[in-house]
């Protein structure tokens, strides 16, 4: 069953009176109990895509310029704000990159988790308290009885991210969007959090959209991968297919850079140059200035997505993998 179906999503940012496209023609689907990984360097539009799905772009400079987001068969973009909020935090939840700042410093964590439950469920105080303890236990927080009354600043980064996960799971969502959930954490804690997410998925049957700049993280956890570059999906395939047959030069570049993944770096050593800024106009393929395989046609003609294998799409004139 298809849970999330995104078609031709366009996002634009208003800057100085004009609209600059930041995400162009993105399409993908997420099945129930499936994990989709979106990978790319910072600034490629992956986080904005996540915010668009969640419905959190309101109040920012970014607008949805076109396309559709269907969730459980309903187009989220056509919903009234009240309806939209009923989906947010209930059937769809999100965790963010910065566990240090993503919790409100003035409330106890138990109350912050409870708030998500109270918003969508009719429960007594006592029931909520029980449910919060259950959630803290679920995300493997030691001594939940004590930690339920602590403030965010009294906890470590790993613990806070667990609290964020507990908060997201409060109403048993069908879809969890995780935007760089482990980037800000220590390497050892990263592994624990990813494992936790995986085991929770097995238990609850939810789907996950995992956003990361780190191909290694994606490889370990995802069923499908979408590689994004400059607002577009440049390669899209099942994880096993992608890793056995990497076709886009950019994906290969990302793989080459796997060892240097302890920080959200602005550019990756294996790929020369930097991500171009939004207002730079690049003719032809947007990746050609940094591409080792670029030829003349790459400078003039923008490639379209084409299948190199069944359900393996690449947006490149000269795919590198072995075509079948």
């Amino acid at each position: 069953m298809v849970l999330l179906d995104i078609r031709d999503l366009d996002l634009s940012i208003a800057r100085g009176g004009e609209l600059l496209p930041v995400v162009q023609g993105i399409s993908f689907t997420v099945e129930e109990n499936e994990t989709l990984g979106i990978v790319g360097e910072s600034g490629c539009g992956k986080s904005l895509t996540a915010l668009a799905i969640m419905g959190l772009l309101e109040g920012s400079a970014v607008r949805i310029a076109g396309g559709s987001i269907h969730f459980q068969g309903r187009n989220l973009l056509a919903l009234a704000p009240v309806e939209r909020r009923r989906v947010m935090g209930e059937r769809m939840a999100m965790i963010f990159q910065e566990p240090m700042t993503s919790l409100n410093p003035v409330y106890r964590i138990g109350d912050q988790i409870g708030e998500a439950i109270l918003q969508h469920r009719r429960m007594s105080r006592k029931q909520v308290h029980e449910r919060v303890l259950e959630l803290l236990d679920l995300v493997r927080i030691p001594d939940p009885e004590r930690l339920i009354d602590s403030f965010p600043h009294q906890m470590s980064g790993g613990q806070r991210q667990r609290v964020m996960i507990a908060m997201a799971l409060a109403c048993d969502p069908k879809l969890l969007i995780a935007d760089e959930p482990t980037t800000a954490l220590d390497v050892t804690v990263q592994k624990d959090v990813l494992e936790l997410m995986h085991s929770l998925q097995t238990r609850t049957g939810m789907s996950i959209v995992l956003i990361s700049h780190d191909l290694a993280v994606i490889a370990e956890t995802c069923d499908k991968v979408a590689v994004m570059y400059r607002g577009r999906i440049v390669e899209h395939a099942a994880t096993s297919a992608l890793f056995s047959n990497m076709s886009h030069p950019y994906t290969l570049g990302l793989l080459g850079s796997i060892p240097a993944h302890d920080q959200d770096v602005e550019w990756l050593d294996a790929i020369p140059g930097r991500v171009p800024t939004l207002d730079e106009l690049i003719s032809g393929c947007a990746f050609h200035p940094r591409c080792f395989a670029a030829k003349d046609s790459c400078r003039t003609v923008d490639p379209v997505a084409a299948a190199v294998a069944p359900a393996h799409f690449v947006r490149c004139h000269f795919p590198q993998g072995n075509s079948t």
């Binding site: 969640m54 959190l56 109040g59 909020r85 947010m88 935090g89 999100m94 963010f96 700042t101 993503s102």
Partner: peptide, 16 residues
């Protein structure tokens, strides 16, 4: 304050 991350978390809960 409205630019801080935790406000986004609160909105993500579907709060009014």
């Amino acid at each position: 304050v409205s630019r801080e991350d935790h406000v986004r978390t609160a909105r993500a809960k579907g709060l009014h």
